[in-house]
């Protein structure tokens, strides 16, 4: 498995898109610093970039890469390699490279912006988002043999997690506004890793005070160590569950 991961990771690093991605992160990261100075504003801006870019890149790039490497997968499959080994190798190399580029791409600007613990938490959350959305991409790639279909559904997933879910939550909140739904909203946020991570990072910043009573309820959970731990575990589950399902599907799939 190590050899395959090594090969795939090297192959990925030679990819032009990966290089452009890194360049994009640097340009936006350092651009923000030169425009907005330092501190929390940068952190929040980088958080916004992460929310927008990480799911998109992970979903689209991973699914295209998987389809492009399909023949190679078949070639490897002729060797005495378990299917789970193959998929784990793909997942690991994609995760290593995309997360590495993310960490390098935003970590450097964050370092220069003088962000402390909150910056590290953002990078950790962002890395988990990488793992989550690469897993979801592979799930889609395995579920749909047809490229167009796989691509379409992965974009749908993107829209769902980035926009649709929050829209539905907003609608729900509008309709149940008379009830004390702050706690419920907290649990609802568990259902979207992007919301969960975003709130986790926000709670460590001064922006939390802007969120009023909802912020206070969230802050009780998200600033305690056990709360942070819980969120990170939930995010890990968000990464592990889709991926383990994708292994299960892959084992039964006709290649």
């Amino acid at each position: 498995m190590g050899k395959i991961i090594q090969f795939l990771a090297t192959d990925l690093f030679k990819n032009k898109t990966i290089f452009l991605y890194l360049l994009f992160l640097w340009v936006t990261g350092f651009g923000l610093i030169s425009l907005q100075g330092q501190g929390e504003k940068i952190l929040l801006a980088l958080l916004n970039i992460s929310i927008l870019v990480v799911p998109m890149i992970c979903l689209v790039f991973s699914i295209i890469y998987f389809y492009n490497m399909y023949e190679f997968l078949l070639l490897l499959h002729a060797q005495p390699l378990a299917r789970s080994t193959l998929l784990i190798s793909f997942y690991t190399s994609l995760s290593l490279v995309l997360t590495g580029v993310y960490l390098f791409g935003l970590g450097l600007p964050l370092y220069f912006s003088g962000a402390g613990g909150e910056g590290l938490l953002l990078l950790l959350t962002g890395s988990l988002w990488n793992l989550i959305f690469i897993g979801l991409a592979l799930l889609m790639a395995i579920w749909a043999s047809d490229r167009t279909k796989g691509m379409g559904f992965s974009l749908l997933i993107w829209v769902y997690f980035v926009l649709l879910f929050d829209g539905l939550v907003l609608l729900l909140m509008y309709n149940f506004n008379e009830y004390p739904i702050e706690k419920l909203v907290l649990y609802i946020s568990f259902l979207n890793p992007l919301d969960l991570g975003r709130i986790l990072v926000l709670m460590q910043t001064d922006a939390a005070a802007l969120m009023g009573y909802t912020g206070a309820v969230f802050q009780q959970v998200f600033t305690e160590n056990w709360g942070k731990g819980l969120v990170l575990v939930l995010l890990l589950l968000w990464a592990l569950i889709p991926f383990s399902v994708s292994i299960r599907w892959f084992n039964k799939k006709d290649l």
Binding site: N48, I51, D166, M173, N177, D195, M211, G212, Y213
Partner: peptide, 20 residues
């Protein structure tokens, strides 16, 4: 304006939905 009517919507602060 939204959060003034629906305080719980504060949870969407800095989300892509809100920016859009």
């Amino acid at each position: 304006l939204i959060t003034d009517k629906v305080p719980a919507a504060h949870m969407l602060l800095h989300s892509f939905l809100v920016s859009s």
